[in-house]
Structures are given as C-alpha cells and as structure tokens.
Nucleic acid binder design. Sequence first.
DNA 1: TTGTAAGCGTTATCAC
DNA 2: GTGATAACGCTTACAA
Lengths: 354, 354
Amino acid sequence: MQSGTAPPSLKSLAAALGLSTATVSRVLSGQGERYRISRVTRDRILAQAHGSGLVVDQLARSLRLRRTLTLGLVIPDISNPFFAQLARQIERHARHRGYAVFIADSEEDAAVEAQAVTLMLSRQVDGLILAPVGTPGTGAALHALRQRPCVLVDRLLPEHSLPAVSSDHRQGAVLAVRHLVERGHRRIACVQGSPGTFANDERIAGWRSGMQAAALACPDWLIRGSGYSIEAGVAAAHELLQLPQRPSAVLALGNLLALGVLRAVREAGVLIPDELSLVAFDDQLWATVTSPPLTIIEQPIEELGRQVLELLLERIAGPMNDPPERRILPARLIERGSVRSLAPIPPASCNPSP
Amino acid sequence: MQSGTAPPSLKSLAAALGLSTATVSRVLSGQGERYRISRVTRDRILAQAHGSGLVVDQLARSLRLRRTLTLGLVIPDISNPFFAQLARQIERHARHRGYAVFIADSEEDAAVEAQAVTLMLSRQVDGLILAPVGTPGTGAALHALRQRPCVLVDRLLPEHSLPAVSSDHRQGAVLAVRHLVERGHRRIACVQGSPGTFANDERIAGWRSGMQAAALACPDWLIRGSGYSIEAGVAAAHELLQLPQRPSAVLALGNLLALGVLRAVREAGVLIPDELSLVAFDDQLWATVTSPPLTIIEQPIEELGRQVLELLLERIAGPMNDPPERRILPARLIERGSVRSLAPIPPASCNPSP
DNA sequence: TTGTAAGCGTTATCAC
DNA sequence: GTGATAACGCTTACAA
C-alpha cells in the first residue's frame, strides 16, 4: 500500500499538518475568526490547502449541513432560443451566488418532466425552477414540489398555486393586436402553440381582448395550430392562407411558429408585409435579418431570469408558507418591417372641405 | 416532539416496517435477488416505499459509493444555438443512462471556466464534458482535469491531450471553398471567430488549403474579425465591403457571424447573392427564412452529443490511462440560395459547332 | 486555541 | 434471509 498518494481531502491535510480535522474544517469554511484559530495555524492550513490543490468534498459537506448549494432547472426545450437564453441568465446568477445548477430538458413531456424532477430531488437540490410542460392535469410532479422550494417560470400552473415569474403574455398579445388594428387590420389570425398551456392561453385571451376592444369579431376559425414546432407553424399558416376570407395579419405566438409562418408564406409565394402582415412573440437575433425584419413582442428574458432566481433564493432562505408570490413582467412591442399599414393617415388632403 | 412526520428515508421506512436498514437498502438498490431476501419482505418494502413516495438520498448514497451518477457540462455560451442544441443532446443521453447533469456557461472567459470546473469537481461529478474557452495558454483548468474523466467537445486543446469529439472543421471549410471555387469565385474572404481557438484556426486552415488547392492566393487581408458575436461579424463584413478589391464571396465561420454579415450587407445595400456570395458555418432553423436562404456547412450536432457522452462513459467505466481517443465527425455542405454562380455551365448551346 | 466524538443517510462486511 | 456495525468526508457541540 502506498500511502503517499492519498486523495487530497480535509482529513489527509489535517494528518499532514498534525492537526485535527476540526481545526482544518473551521479554517477552510471561513470560521477561523469565530473559533479564534491562531494566525499561524490558519496560515499553515491555507498554504497547504492551496499548495495541494485541495477541493473540499461538497458531498460530505452537504450531507452534514443538509444543504447542497445546488439548484435544479427543468425546461421544455433547451434548444428553443427563448429557454436557452433564460437558462443562461439563471445559471449565471446562480453561479454568482455560489450555486451549481442541474439542467434537464423535459421534451414537452409530462412524464419526462416528473422523472427529471425526481432525479433532482433525489440529489437533494435546495430548490427547483420549473418551466412546466403544463398540459392540464399534469400534477405528476405535485407531490414532489411541496417538499422543496420551487418557483415556476414562464408558464404558471393554476392548479398548484406556486410562486412564479412570467412575462405578461396577455398584455403582450393586446399590444400586438392594438398595433395591427391601428394600422387598419380587421381580420387578425392567431398561430398558437400548445392549447391548454398557460402562456398560450393567456396570449389567446389577450388577442380576444384586443379584438373586442376594437369591436372586432374573433371567431375560432382565426385560431390555428397546435404545438410549438416549426412544422406546426407551417401547417397552421397554410390553413390560414387558404381561407376564403384570408386574414390580413397573423399573430404568431412563439418564435418557432414565426419561422413556420415565414416558411409557409414563402412556399405559397405570398409577400410579407404586402399581402400579409406578421407580428411574432419573442425577439430573436435572426429577427432583424429575415425579409422583412420581424415586428415582435419581446419578453424581458434577462429580468425573468434574475427575478425567478431571486424569488427562489428567498423561498430557500425564508419560510415556505407565506402566500406564493407571482411576478408578472411587462412585454413590449418592437416595430420592424413585417406590418403593413392598410389605412394610411386619414386622407384629409383627399377630402376637400365643403 | 412530533415523531409522526419524520422525513421519508430509508431508515424511517425500516423502522416503520420493523426491519433493518440493511435489508431495506438491499431491496431498494435492486440487490434483493442477490441477497436472497424473501419475496414477502421484498414486497412489503417496495409497497411501503411507493406508498410513502420515498426517494432515496443520492447524497448519502454517493458518499458511500464514491460515485454520484452526475456529470458536468461547461460550454462557452448556452444561448448560442449550436451549444444549446449540443447541450440538449448531451443532457438527453445522460438522463437515459441515469445521470444528472450540471451545466455552466463559461462566458468565453477562462477564469469563469476554471471556477465552474472547480465547482463541479467539488460536487464530485463522475465526469466532465468541456467545450473549452481555449484561448491559448489557458491551462487554468489543467490540474483539475487530470483528477476525473474529462472529454472535450467542439474545441480541442492541443496542449492537453485529452479525449475529444468534434466535427471536422478543416474539411468543412475545404468543402465551402471548393463549392465557391466551382462556381467561379476567386476572391473568397473569411469572417472568423476567436483566433487562437481550435475550431476557428482549423477552419482558417481549411480555407487556406482549399484556396491553395485551387491555386488561389490567400492573403491575410482576406481574413477579418475577432470574436463570435454578431457585432464582430458586422464590423468584419463592413471592412471587407470597403476593400478596393472587394471579395466576391465570404465564408462566415459561425452562425452568429453569419447574422452579422447579413446585417452589415443589408446596411450597405449590397445584395446577396447577386453582389456577394455567402457560406456560413452551422445550420440553424432560421437559415431557411433569411433572404436568400443560407448555404451552410452543417455539423452533425446530434452525433457529436451522442459520441461525446459515449466516450465519457467509457472513460468513467474503464481505465483512464489508455491513449486519449479523438473522434472527428465529418461536416457537410447544404446548398441553398446564398451563392451565385459566376461562371455558368460552359455555354455549349451558345457555341455553335463548326 | 485546539481536540474528541457524534452524526448526516446510505451501503458493505461480517455475523447469525 | 436478516441484522449489527463500520465506514464514506465533513461539521459542530462539548471538552480541555
């Protein structure tokens, strides 16, 4: 047995220095002052620790402390740019606070989601951030979610009453509709994502509300699509283009759906914005280089990330019992080139006064 | 003291059943057969476990087993679609094999990267997947990387001789140049990412090799840009457009750079492909809806993810000493609409036979 | 100012 | 077939 190559550990370090593990632990965990460890031993320990490249085992530490400094993040699709950007913000803030973060992709599948949550819970994460699949009746994760602090993001779960952060999907849709109405559009269609899902339904509600505010009809046949994929967007757009009463504008409720609409429109030889106007949810880097550049509803992703982490850390620190807080952040419209003005400024000049 | 609400644990379950923790552990870890636990106790334990929703504490388990079933993934920018898609694949495969994965965004910063690696190492990950920042001389993570299995992806570190998986950046660039040359282009410029970085330099090397194969000059002034951001792409493209000897084609070495080129070209009122041809690295969902759709070099992201995980699990299972394996996967060119043919098919029809 | 020892929740070794 | 019990590497009363 070669004893020279013991894996660096607090214990081995103590042995090498002829000190007790207690003393070493106290210094390494920054409690040297509190325990009045002498300057010299403190320095000896620190020097040796750096020299040997010692990294204290957080596993053992966590077991003892009942706290892992670890968070879990479960999102429906990492490769969706919206969620990718969100994940980036969350991880960055978490790292700055000393937390490591587990990530999982639920693939928009409630079973996978439940499995991922369990996996993280078993690793004793201190808290969980969840952008739930959220198809109704998906309470599989329910039992688990009560055990540890958990904050929802983007999509709320009406049934669960958990704290949550999301952008104001409804107001965003209202903004879009108003923008279109002001430019003379009357028949405004929706290409939706997953019906039954919080964000989607809120956006639909916003569309309804915006239409009604303009005294416009909002029949169900103006709503098409199901699922947040490009293909779904293509299909929905094709349906809309073939309508006898073709809409003059389309509101796409997701960035992938917008891509689908663009693709369908190109296939059909329809021109944007000349023959069809388009407003889409979620700003993307590519939204300025499509032709035309897309007018979009932007969600404050950075702020969403910041606040959801803040809220989670609050829940971890404080009591979990207080009424679940919900933070709704405003969306805003960014005007680019995909909307045509049908009714130009009231043609006063063409209307000779009597 | 209320003893009724003990947190569900292997121990509490054993107590409730009047069994020893040993027995319960054996059953719960699937070793019931091996230890010849009787059918009845086995069933009793399983039933109780499911009933109480017990999730065994992987923390304690890992401490004992010296194995966490946890991996670490460090990438330079989660919101870059290439890395987002890669992360998705890796996480998915890891999950299927029972591994949880830590993610971190190194922000293209070697110090952040080192910090993230340490964070994960301290959590005793079984292995690490790293897309290193890779600016030369970035050996900060070095000491750590020898301690645990680690596989590089996308960018190799010549200095470190670690196992790695990446696409064939060089061959991809050769493909692009050949495609352009075949269509009559002679002055082909490069908009590069971070010089000194593996992927970037390989692509530049491929460009050189392709140019030389066609007996074309490849002066340094045809290479512009530094950094993988859109802004860098815009700046580089502007420089190229103002050149007295303006190139007829541009090779963008990253998807964000391609966006930058598109933006710059639009600002300058230059038409693609009529006045400038463009080939870009990395396929993206939006690459078909730009105008024109982009001709691109596609990396096999799914396969990269699959193989890097496979390689890592091999290293975890087997000995770490064998020579570090490197897998280089071929890239391919997808032709769309951003390249113009300068030399049309030999005009035989206009060339009346004698 | 430092050491001793119990314990975090699990698994493996040895008994019976 | 099952149960004691000693680790795993760390923290923290309690002693000294």
